[in-house]
Nucleic acid binder design. Structure first.
Lengths: 262, 262
DNA sequence: TTTCATTGCGTTAGTTAGACACAATATAAA
DNA sequence: TTTATATTGTGTCTAACTAACGCAATGAAA
């Protein structure tokens, strides 16, 4: 039934010595947000062995800060550095772990993990969300598991393993309540972007329509945008102007909080 | 030098079997906010053996959700149930642990922990903050360590162990940015309170003076307060009216966020 | 050349924020 | 008992802002 694929050295080491190399019972999972074609997406692992999706995650080295572990995961999956990353919650339901996820994964290598294997113990996972410029990401197969990540519309998610769907929606909720303090524009959009794009991003995260003209006025009043002398042609209609962020002012404004009544 | 105090059974078990009973390398620390005499305070442990303060913290049982562990700590230290509790960050600097804290603590029992003792390993701690009605708390000595908690003005904190001071200020920052979504009034004030008290609470957390009259108008416009037909006499001046929260409306308003430009 | 959805810029009415005035009141001081 | 004082309750006014909408310009498609 299960064809035996050879186990790569990294995976082998993980299975055999993982409990010596990593903090036991602890993991990180990352909800990586991207924005493309006016849709909010997240980067998920497409698990070939059970046809389900999983959040990119990993373990924490014995002497590593948790943030670094999350960062490693991000780098490995996206190839991008300098990513906005934020811890938002901890998921620790004692029954959240699911041995079958691991077992079915290693079955294709002809391996059955013993019942007391460290991977099958209870895991508490620390949730991070990341904001990343979609256009900079080159997804590639992981060196470890040869699995690919793909972007999925956050509203078209289904069949995720364990509690990963809950983690995603907690991340989104967290992003929403911290919107005034989070550089979503800077990190989710390409360097140059149009006002309609920025607006759509806010609308998507807030799940709420905003008035085009009032939005523009408000954004400009924050004093964080540079209007360029270029337009984005190619769309089917009037070409909108391009903008960039004035990084210094943006950072400063975020400290105080970009409040607003939306 | 160190007088030998007898080790109570709970502590003995913790030392000897802690690594079997609890998740290893993981702890929770709680920043318990209270508000009294117009000052924002936190509840800290007064460590007799080194004259420093520590956040109330604890370990996570093998099969326990992390929130439950934090809740246990709260209950033990305050005797109050039904406390607002929120995870806000994770502290995982590999060098944050400090063996001397434990060693000096057990020295008074005449115990020296071996170098590879589980308590001396690296710990990652999950930070929670709690909001509690000062008037309901009866601090008492812990059954385990016989140490007392005490309320300390958050602006007069010093000499805390390890990174606990950093944890406190991260908690405060977190509280601030989530103010619009956090029931600070309901949880930090007694059932009946005056408008000046509520205002002072916001001023303290925001570290900012607010106009008395505008604050009142705004609070009332949220529609979350019930004005009572009583006043708080005893103060040296005109007696202010008492209010209670309209719980239903408050909860609803918090979901949307009590936004404001302060 | 015309059509049309979209963008840029503008207007207006209603609301809110921010600053301040003044009377009422509970205790302390005289 | 009277007066003083700090504080609270209520109200006013202006500037600023929000929400809703108008209209001309534009760029691709028909």
């Amino acid at each position: 039934m299960a064809k035996k694929v050879s186990l790569n050295p990294g995976l082998k080491q993980l299975l055999e010595k993982g409990d010596k190399l990593y903090q036991t019972g602890l993991s990180v999972d990352t909800v990586i947000f991207g924005f493309h074609e006016n849709v909010l997406k997240i980067l998920v692992l497409d698990m070939q062995h059970n046809n389900k999706k999983a959040l990119p995650g990993g373990f924490i080295k014995i002497d590593e800060p948790v943030e670094d572990a999350a960062y490693r995961v991000l780098q490995e999956r996206t190839g991008v550095s300098n990513i906005f990353l934020q811890q938002f919650d901890v998921f620790s339901n004692p029954t959240r772990s699911d041995a079958s996820v691991h077992q079915s994964r290693y079955k294709e290598y002809g391996i059955k993990l013993p019942k007391d294997h460290w991977l099958l113990k209870r895991f508490i996972t620390i949730g991070f969300f990341a904001l990343i410029d979609f256009t900079e990401v080159k997804t590639k197969a992981s060196q470890l598991d040869a699995e690919y990540c793909e972007w999925v519309d956050i509203h078209k998610l289904d069949s995720m393993i364990m509690d990963h769907k809950e983690i995603v929606f907690k991340a989104l909720e967290s992003l929403r309540t911290q919107l005034a303090y989070t550089p979503i524009g800077k990190n989710l959009l390409p360097k140059k972007f149009t006002m309609p794009e920025l607006q759509k991003l806010y609308e998507t995260i807030l799940d709420q329509k905003l008035d085009r003209r009032n939005f523009q006025r408000k954004m400009i009043s924050f004093g964080i945008l540079n209007k360029l002398n270029e337009t984005r042609k190619g769309g089917a209609h009037k070409a909108p102007f391009l903008y960039t962020f004035n990084d210094k002012k943006y950072q400063k404004a975020l400290k105080e909080g970009l409040y607003g009544s939306w």
